[in-house]
């Protein structure tokens, strides 16, 4: 944790500069605010429960979509990565679907699912699927063929091979893809709420804008940033705590 104080210096300095200039040079307007006002607005939103509820809604949408994408993306990545034939068949289709912006699916999602969690979850899942799948399939292709041969000489079945040989082998690289996807999940969840879905932090942001509350809007932005940071740190922590043994082996002579 020794690096943390150094990393905190810049944001803290910025906040202090912002606060002092806001108090001395500028008057609060409809568009400008001060850190102290942001903090007050956040605390108030926290007290009346609206912040907790909105956070829960956004995180639920992001988390469920992320989990769906993680499972499907890993499975699909393993299948496409291990079979040259399937990879060749599905590859062009994947490349065609992947560039579709997840946000462009919102109108379609609204038609199919209407407002609500399901539409948000499906959009998040769509956006997160590709990074996970691409990383997983590339990692599978990078597995040393010797390991697969060991599983063949043991007459281990396809499913067992995927679970005991392939999945653990790709964990380190897969985790990079999962962290990417987690970031995408939060972005897309908030975007869906801003664009269409009347719930969660994105919707609160829109409300703050419509009610001319820059303090609350800036406060929510900071809050979302913190959530993203905590999410990433959490995943790194999980990786270090539980997946250290899957790091690539060093060769001993």
């Amino acid at each position: 944790m020794t690096r943390l104080p150094r990393g905190l210096a810049l944001p803290i300095a910025a906040l202090i500069a912002w606060e002092t200039s806001g108090r001395t040079l500028f008057q609060p307007t409809d568009t400008l605010t001060r850190p102290s006002a942001m903090a007050a607005a956040l605390v108030q939103a926290g007290m009346d429960g609206s912040l907790v509820q909105a956070t829960a809604e956004t995180l639920a949408g992001a988390a469920i979509g992320f989990l769906i994408a993680s499972v499907l993306g890993t499975a699909a990545g393993i299948v496409l990565g291990s079979s040259r034939i399937l990879g060749g068949v599905a590859g062009p289709t994947v490349e065609l679907l992947r560039p579709i912006p997840a946000v462009a699916l919102i109108p379609l999602g609204l038609l199919i699912f209407g407002f609500g969690v399901r539409m948000e979850v499906m959009t998040v899942a769509f956006a997160c699927l590709w990074p996970v799948m691409t990383v997983a399939s590339a990692a599978v292709k990078g597995i040393d063929p010797r390991l697969i041969e060991v599983s063949r000489t043991l007459e281990i079945g396809r499913l067992e091979q995927a679970l005991k040989f392939i999945l653990p082998s790709i964990f380190p690289r897969l985790f990079v893809g999962l962290r990417l996807a987690a970031g995408v999940a939060l972005v897309v969840a908030v975007t869906v709420e801003i664009a269409a879905n009347p719930q969660g932090l994105g919707y609160r942001l829109i409300l703050a804008q419509q009610n001319l509350r820059p303090d609350l809007a800036f406060g929510l932005l900071t809050w979302i940033g913190c959530l993203g940071w905590v999410l990433n740190r959490g995943l790194v922590g999980v990786e270090r705590r539980y997946f250290w043994r899957f790091a690539p082996a060093k060769r001993n002579a």
Partner: peptide, 21 residues
Amino acid sequence: TRPRRELAVVFQDYTKALLPW
């Protein structure tokens, strides 16, 4: 026609033939 458990293979590159995890 395919590998079988009765025929065990000891590979030269033991590092790659063991599961490091």
